[in-house]
Design a protein around this nucleic acid. Sequence first.
DNA 1: CCGGAACCTTGATATTTGTCAAGAAAAGGT
DNA 2: ACCTTTTCTTGACAAATATCAAGGTTCCGG
Lengths: 196, 196
Amino acid sequence: MADFTPLFDYIEKKSSVTLSDDERGLIMNKLKPKKLRKRQFFLQEGDVCKYMGFIIKGATRMFSVDERGHEHILHFGMEDWWVGDYESFHLLTPSKYYVEALEDTEMLLITSEQLNDMVRSIRAIAEMLESLGRGAAIANNKRMHAAISLTAEERYEDLAKTYPYFFNRFPQNMIASYLGISPETLSRIRKMALKA
Amino acid sequence: MADFTPLFDYIEKKSSVTLSDDERGLIMNKLKPKKLRKRQFFLQEGDVCKYMGFIIKGATRMFSVDERGHEHILHFGMEDWWVGDYESFHLLTPSKYYVEALEDTEMLLITSEQLNDMVRSIRAIAEMLESLGRGAAIANNKRMHAAISLTAEERYEDLAKTYPYFFNRFPQNMIASYLGISPETLSRIRKMALKA
DNA sequence: CCGGAACCTTGATATTTGTCAAGAAAAGGT
DNA sequence: ACCTTTTCTTGACAAATATCAAGGTTCCGG
């Protein structure tokens, strides 16, 4: 039996609405548990992202691979985050991304139709989505602003402040990829930062 | 008397819901027309962004200024776009950005409370916001992906495909700022592109 | 606990992009 | 149409970052 507690807590926190027992039951019927082993893929390039996943435990990365074979990490995922290619999920277009488990991961999956059902029937879900959308818009703006206005070093420092726990959890070469710089450059930046 | 037609059309298109005459009247009461002359500021750094503006006619840019005095354009705005600092608008925090008219501009302004009222009373508005949020999330992901994975030249080509009309409307140095590169680099990239 | 894989660092060098400065071209106001 | 301001281009040079290669760690599975 999967543990839905983190999801219930998350919905109530994001929506500031309490879930009834009926609603909890409904949610448990709609979301389907899924386990991924480390290195297993949740989504592969070219596939349609049929599910969004809520992470109960574990971590993921979403990345693309360019013509030269280089990987570019667009998002990490961890406990209490939703993962998946939002564009593909909503438009049903083939994804340009991979989503891969970085640790053994437990998720709860939902399809687009099921999500729409729940938005209609459960007020807390609708409000959670609004809140999620707002937060994402604000976070995206910040990250985009950093990308166009900061140097690699400043982006590193910004990330270290915003998501310090990334550094305990993800290998440095992936953090470099997330920042849009090479692993070597990140290594050198960190050496500088120690002295300063 | 301000012309609300573009806004009505926009709401109906985004929501796929038809507005009643009552709803149109309500909208006309809530949104307040505002004209900006070229170079006039809609928002200045340090101020709270009390209004979001829907552009009827004209164009704007939203930008920050760093310690070295360099400007970084995060967003352009033009007809049928909403402009303002979303973070400041929702959290009522001082903005880090300026929003400036690049042409004589006519907008319709709305406050956070008025928007909330309308979301509750007019279904089309709620759906428009959902659609807007979805579209913004998708566009943000694309732009962020471009920022971490493409070279300056590739980002230029991508922009030329996605928003070709930017080049007719905005000076090249601003487009460079939007791309996160120097005006000189953009000039050189364009020269290369002609030959290739 | 051993061996391989993944990860990190460092150096040398190449490439990309930024900076500064000057002049040319274009745009805008009166 | 003229003058001023803004914008664009070009060149020389500097700085930032990527690439390639090698060696040293650390981590993990058997």
